[in-house]
């Protein structure tokens, strides 16, 4: 118990500084987002895995002295060994080299398609949302109709018309894939447009292009990045699916989808051949999804505290 003496009742007044002390140091949006992403162990593990995967996609094909297309009919369907770390396929091609070639192709397709979707979607959605009114009306009607067309069927048709190949896969996916992003960006822009800083820029006579690039896009970048991250595994899946039904990349090129397809044909005899492509497709898609989840949590301004 504190002893109550008269001197304790000396008036000292308030301590406003203490009552207004700022608890947290201020951080920029990106520092803050990065800090929160770093705290998310699952997302960081995914990021590390994806970086390793990227490195392997670059150097993996050179780690063994074979080319992805080298056939060795004397050594078909061999299990993993010191010479062939992942074994060989039905034509005696080295599966280690082919798996990393597959990684190259799957990652290239996934990332390129997602980025192109993103760019087109952002431009389209940004314009539509920014101008609003009749422009928006017409542009969004078009998007609504495109959105109603079954994605995979259209991709298959486009592949048929354009013929198989890496570029055509990406083109086919991008032609149909950007609408989701366009909708998202338009929604964001419509919300932001009425906010004060944009109105202020408008009053100051900034041009539409400048307002879109300098104000609207930076403020919608969070959801855009998240959406692109989720688009990558979707594109990787689409490629694998197409390759699996024989419409994707053509032999002797390998993607994870064609490797899975090849392995399925000999599944009963050599089930382990399916393991590597199945494992890498799944873990890659998983990592992009988990990273996307982490980014969504880290970039969501509402969670910023």
């Amino acid at each position: 118990m504190i002893e109550l003496t008269r001197e304790k009742f000396e008036r000292v007044g308030p301590n406003i500084e203490e009552s207004q002390a700022i608890v947290r140091p201020s951080m920029t949006y990106w520092q803050d987002a990065w800090r929160r992403l770093k705290m998310n162990k699952v997302a960081m593990a995914s990021l590390v895995f994806l970086i390793l995967l990227g490195i392997m996609a670059i150097i993996g094909p050179y780690m063994l002295p074979y080319k992805y297309s080298d056939q060795n009919l004397m050594l078909t369907n061999r299990p993993p060994s010191a010479e062939h770390w992942f074994g060989t396929d039905y034509l005696g091609r080295d599966l280690f080299v082919r798996t990393w070639m597959g990684a190259r192709i799957s990652l290239t397709i996934g990332i390129t398609a997602a980025l192109l979707d993103g760019i087109i979607g952002v431009i389209y959605g940004g314009i539509s949302g920014y101008f609003g009114g009749q422009v928006d009306n017409v542009m969004m009607r078009i998007v609504d109709i495109l959105y109603g067309i079954p994605y995979l069927i259209l991709v298959i048709l486009l592949m048929l018309v354009m013929g198989p190949g890496l570029v055509t896969i990406i083109t086919a996916m991008v032609i149909t894939g950007w609408v989701g992003m366009a909708r998202l960006v338009r929604g964001q822009v419509l919300q932001l447009k009425e906010q004060e800083f944009v109105l202020a820029a408008k009053t100051l006579g900034a041009s539409p292009g400048r307002i879109i690039m300098k104000h609207l896009i930076p403020n919608t970048i969070g959801p855009i990045i998240v959406s692109i991250t989720f688009d990558v595994p979707a594109a990787i899946f689409t490629e694998a699916f197409l390759s699996y039904i024989g419409l994707g990349v053509q032999p002797p090129l390998a993607s994870w989808g064609t490797l899975a397809n090849d392995a399925t044909n000999v599944l009963l005899l050599y089930p382990y051949q399916l393991f590597f492509p199945a494992f890498f497709i799944s873990v890659t898609m998983l990592s992009f999804n988990l990273l996307g989840d982490g980014l969504r949590d880290a970039l969501d301004p509402r969670l910023r505290k």
């Binding site: 504190i2 000292v12 301590n15 203490e18």
Partner: peptide, 14 residues
């Protein structure tokens, strides 16, 4: 206490 104009020493202690 931290906001009180009349705060005394004791106010911060008990």
């Amino acid at each position: 206490a931290a906001r009180c104009d009349y705060a005394m020493k004791i106010c911060y202690e008990a």
